[in-house]
Design a protein around this nucleic acid. Structure first.
Lengths: 229, 229
DNA sequence: CTGCATCCCCTCAGATACTG
DNA sequence: CAGTATCTGAGGGGATGCAG
């Protein structure tokens, strides 16, 4: 073992290797994903990341805090407790998350039984599906309803803001997905439903076509999930 | 354990989670990084990823091939052997690699003793440093010499092509870094040398300033910088 | 309740030796 | 050159305990 090199380091002076050292551990980027959308408490994260062992979540949060990516704060009077947020450094990971989500979405097969979908994941996948070139100059707002999950997307002269919850002062178009049995409330499922016409619209129909152009991409590289060995 | 969910899966119907299932294992994205720049043999990869255990490299390559990211081919007559390349799906990971590298570069400290730098990593980090807005409409070519590593970058009306080796029919400007003792031939070290004037130029000086504008981003702890000759 | 810490178990990574 | 075989230990998965 060379001096100055911790065992789990890659020992490469490279941005990609450094990124993987900091957020390459298991579950780490999913923690960042959820915190990118909104601040969360420990138990919120446990729910959004269903299946994460409590000791792993605890360890990741400490490591991410140590790395200056996550901030741990004690919440004020009503609903006291601990709230985790991203630092500026942590928020700077969003482009990487979006790029990974863009690629991974193209590699999603059919939802497996037992698969879940977190609202935070849906927001990030929406942002990954966004096609700026199709949105140039547009101004409009949409409200997407994926089961209990409500997402807003607003274009102001082609610039996107998006997040959880409804659009303030009403969306131009509300799109409610009619999910089938067992279909998780993921963004990908929402797009599938929209393409197949399994949606209810409240607003001008042409804005629905605009939505499909601006917030989806051709699912060229589709493939099935590998069969368990 | 729920049916249909392998133990190491995240069991989330989310593009980011899917990406991490496919390329989130240790060393996996670094293998893809090296293959993004050029096809490589097994031993090439071992050298570029110094420190990777041979059984892990072997396992990762099989997994990546299984996932349709990497292709294994037997090379033709001269220099027979096995050559690994990326598939279309694998090449589609480049934006994610670049985004991760951009972020990770901002988190790189001083090079630790024992750290190495692969030529392939330098190319990807160059692409991550590229600022399209600063390059709009520009046409020019640079050759960067980082020790034994030679990188070319060519702008054609603002569009970048880059890779290893010199520019065909000569670069407009050749920039040779004068590295200090122990400084690894990484892109970040090259930028540092350039900013501190530790470079030799062969070509018009104004193209050097253009290079700094187009291929670097502000890094922490910037100070007044001496001008190179 | 929330926010962890501790336990055991087992998988996978690290290191090294060896082979078609 | 392109891996396989084997051993060991770190770290993740899962259940449980417990303090504020």
């Amino acid at each position: 073992m060379v001096r100055g090199v911790k065992r789990r380091d890659y020992a490469q002076y490279c941005g990609i290797a450094r990124a993987l050292e900091l957020v390459g551990e298991r579950w780490a980027l999913l923690v960042v994903r959820d915190l990118t959308v909104r601040p969360r408490r420990y138990t919120d994260l446990q729910e959004g990341l269903r299946g994460i062992p409590t000791n792993v979540l605890s360890t990741r949060l400490k490591e991410l805090e140590q790395a200056g990516i996550v901030e741990r704060r004690v919440a004020p009077a009503p609903r006291r407790g601990v709230v985790y947020t991203l630092t500026e450094v942590g928020r700077a990971l969003e482009p990487a998350l979006i790029a990974l989500g863009r690629w991974g979405s193209s590699q999603l097969g059919e939802p497996q039984p037992g698969y879940v979908a977190s609202p935070d994941g849906a927001v990030l996948n929406l942002r990954g599906a966004f096609q700026p070139s199709e949105a140039a100059g547009l101004t409009a707002s949409w409200e997407l309803r994926l089961g209990d999950t409500v997402i807003h997307a607003r274009l102001a002269d082609g610039a996107l803001t998006s997040g959880l919850g409804p659009v303030e002062d009403g969306a131009d178009l509300v799109i409610t997905a009619r999910f089938e049995e067992g279909e998780p409330p993921a963004y990908r499922s929402f797009v599938k439903a929209a393409r197949e016409g399994r949606v209810d619209l409240d607003g001008p129909r042409e804005l629905f076509d605009t939505f499909l152009r601006v917030f989806t991409y051709p699912q060229a590289c589709e493939r099935d999930l590998p069969t368990p060995r």
